[in-house]
Simulated assay, not measured.
Amino acid sequence: MLHVAGKLTQNRLLHTVQGKPDTLADWLEAYKAIVAKRDIANSTRAVIRQRVAKISKAMGEHRMEAITTRVIAEHLATLSGTPRMQQATRSLLLDIFREAISEGWISSNPVQSTRSERVTTKRGRLSLDAFKTIHKWAQENQPAWAVRSYELALVTAQRREDIASMLFSQERDGQLYVIPKKVIKHGVKIAIPTSLRLNALGWTVADVIGRCRDNILSRHMIHHTAHAGKAKPGAKVREHTISQMFAKARDAVQITVPGKTPPSFHEIRSLALRLYAEQGINAQALAGHKSADMTALYRDVRGDEWITVGELRTDSAQIPNTSK
């Protein structure tokens, strides 16, 4: 892949002639070109660029062959106290040096033997009662699109970005077809029967989609119904705006979890997967997860709810494979 950075190739040749060593900063220029060609979300690519810039500023002058596990460990130690950032930085460094090996810049990965601080999830889970309370307040105090976004997230168990971008055209032939943006590179496609019913509230997917239809012409299920800043009626509602609105409703009804941060909009997905699992629905299929382990993380109530012994059973019912 080195050809994607022609100038860098010239620099390496110049370094050889002048006897100058290749630095991490040199390699990071090539790495950014590699990332630019990856099939990932623009937001993810932007985050990577920001983190690469920080790494380059902190360690860029180091010669590639002189970067040892100790050098990496000392850099990670500067992030002590921010375990999530430390973990994310370590993961990025692993990839940076893995790509460097494949391009012949180095022969071993100095990040492999390091470790990061254990990350403890501090965000509280959302209970069904809490959702009902938030939903009721939202119906009385928030625009219709906000209420619909909460409902759509609960009956489909999809992520915020997929709820925000969901189109009416995705519903056809009794199915709601979803290609999750976060895992699009893995080729995950989900066909959700619109007849799927969430027993806990008595809603079907079709019911909620029907409520998303109003007298405003729009392609988007979640859309503005009035002018809001630069947004016109029918325009897509931004992901961040959806999260802000949910947080406002949550705080208004004082939903808290002792010792943890309040549940965010994302926790609606976890609640949905737990509720569907209780019905015997295959939560892994509905979530679009490649592994059962990932689904288990979402279904983990993190000690925020009591588990009834009679509910400890495995998923059995499968969502029909009706993908076309």
Results as ranks from 00 to 15, higher is better:
11 N>K: 11
11 N>S: 12
13 L>P: 06
14 L>M: 12
21 P>C: 04
21 P>V: 07
26 D>H: 08
27 W>F: 13
28 L>F: 04
38 R>M: 15
39 D>G: 03
53 A>C: 02
63 R>M: 14
68 T>K: 08
71 V>T: 12
72 I>V: 15
75 H>D: 02
79 L>V: 03
81 G>T: 04
85 M>D: 01
87 Q>C: 00
90 R>M: 07
98 R>Y: 07
100 A>R: 02
102 S>I: 08
108 S>R: 09
127 S>A: 12
127 S>N: 05
134 I>E: 02
134 I>D: 02
135 H>T: 00
139 Q>C: 15
141 N>D: 09
142 Q>N: 05
144 A>T: 07
151 E>W: 09
151 E>N: 06
153 A>D: 05
155 V>D: 00
166 M>F: 06
171 E>Y: 08
178 V>D: 02
186 H>T: 15
193 P>V: 09
205 V>T: 06
210 G>K: 03
212 C>L: 07
213 R>G: 15
216 I>T: 15
217 L>E: 15
218 S>T: 12
219 R>H: 07
220 H>G: 09
230 K>A: 12
234 G>R: 03
234 G>I: 04
243 S>A: 11
244 Q>M: 05
247 A>T: 08
249 A>V: 12
254 Q>F: 08
277 A>H: 13
283 A>V: 01
287 A>M: 11
291 S>Y: 06
297 L>P: 00
300 D>M: 14
300 D>C: 14
303 G>P: 07
305 E>A: 14
308 T>E: 14
308 T>D: 13
312 L>D: 08
318 Q>T: 14
323 S>L: 15
